[in-house]
Write a protein that binds this DNA or RNA. Structure first.
Lengths: 252, 252
DNA sequence: ATCCTCGGTTTAGTCCGACATATTCGGGTC
DNA sequence: GACCCGAATATGTCGGACTAAACCGAGGAT
């Protein structure tokens, strides 16, 4: 697979066909290049320390202009995946320099087979952050926060989690909870984690139908926050995360 | 001020002088442009929702080629600060879309007068994450981790925190602690936070000399981790963060 | 023999000008 | 008044040329 999903006829080069993505007008060409290179790197196909082919050669191999290729590389540089210097070329940086919290990097990490170890790390972080977020939300939520959360919850109850609308409501609930913390750093972090976690649901679903109804757990969290009981909110959220981890672990 | 510090002769336009940075060969030209635009945005000079001037006009105003300007904008796009569509122009995204955890964005946020509210949020997040990290470190550290931490600690004791070497040792200690958690997500997060916190020390110092010797607190954390006492490690780290917050709060 | 210095070569960085593409906006039609 | 369609406009992509910086090997000095 290359810049587009359809693996069609191989050109005379025979190594990396790569045709422009004609159907998908969604993300731009440079986005496709960045996605291609990004997945190659996070998947380990280009291992840290290695230097990827020169701009001119690589751009030609992908059949794109050097400008588009360079702009894609700038994106990778901005996310800490690579570093390029004149004469030295563009090298993949060690994993410790990568911005793993960047939503796009997370998306690339989950575009292939996700690393089970990293998923574990992610849930561990979630288990640390989200209960704390619930605690803060219980202490600081105002009238609007409670209303938004309640609305999301009722929508979540109406449509189940199996539907798109239900999952959207789930995300709305978590977003509202984060907003209620009135902590921008926490919001940014949990937004990234939440996105990553939602990628894992894709794999969760393919294993079996959702084994448990998550609504009651959400209600417990909501009630505690609405009541302003910080400890109860943290505890409820902790069990919610633990159960989600359980579900995900079973399906991997 | 523009792409370089020296505000020299104004050109005939008279609005934005801007000369190429001759002295600073450090970051490339596009880096300077990204820094310029990035600080403008995070500082609120270009408020979310506003659309910045067209590429051709803005590139000319900054006296750089359109290519360099565009590559800089790609960096901002990668960090979620702006979004650009044909005909619509390039608009600043709402703060909720920004990648606040990105080290570079944090650097931009702290390049001017830092927002005290955001600093509070950051320390709050730190107070949540770092004790948990210390707990995990106490549970999972191996022989090498302990050794690295001990070395950093002795170096930290020799040079004080007032010296560069001392601050480097401090960062080494925290990095080693993070490594000891063997959790990549946690490492990535705390690295960002740590960098941001180190920016704040700049302001901490200008207020008064460090009022307290932080070494004993670090030793308490180290001892607990070396002993494998998770609860004690978390508690010690919590007091350490609380004290750091106290110091920072006094100086702002 | 080893170290330093000094170019040459390679590769990214910047610049320029043109064309393609996709929206938005406005006008025209039903 | 609502809908459809064309034109204006800004970003997106392209291709080529030139600049600048850093690695590396050759040559000379110690």
């Amino acid at each position: 697979m290359a810049l587009d999903e359809q693996a069609d006829g191989v050109d005379e080069a025979g190594v990396q066909p790569i045709t422009r993505t004609p159907k998908g007008s969604g993300r731009r060409l440079r986005g496709a290049i960045a996605h291609y290179l990004g997945t190659q790197i996070v998947s380990g196909a280009i291992a840290p320390g290695e230097k990827l082919t020169g701009e001119v050669a690589n751009a030609e191999a992908l059949d794109v202009s050097r400008s588009a290729y360079r702009e894609a590389v700038q994106v990778l540089t901005a996310k800490g995946l690579v570093e390029s210097r004149p004469k030295a070329g563009t090298r993949v940086l060690p994993r410790s320099r990568w911005n793993m919290l960047d939503p796009q990097v997370l998306a690339w990490a989950f575009s292939g087979e996700p690393d089970t170890e990293f998923v574990r790390d992610l849930f561990e972080l979630r288990a640390v952050v989200e209960p704390a977020a619930a605690r803060l939300a219980a202490e600081r939520r105002d009238r609007d926060d409670v209303k938004t959360m309640r609305d999301a919850l009722t929508k979540m109850r109406r449509h189940t989690l199996a539907t798109d609308a239900g999952r959207a409501a789930d995300r709305d609930f978590h977003d509202a909870l984060l907003e209620a913390t009135h902590n921008n750093a926490l919001i940014a972090l949990s937004a990234s984690i939440g996105a990553a976690v939602s990628w894992t649901t894709k794999y969760k679903q393919r294993a079996r139908a959702l084994p448990r109804d998550p609504v009651p757990d959400h209600i417990k969290v909501f009630d505690a926050i609405a009541a302003g009981d910080a400890d109860a909110a943290a505890a409820a959220m902790r069990t919610l995360v633990d159960l989600a981890l359980e579900d995900t672990r079973l399906s991997m």
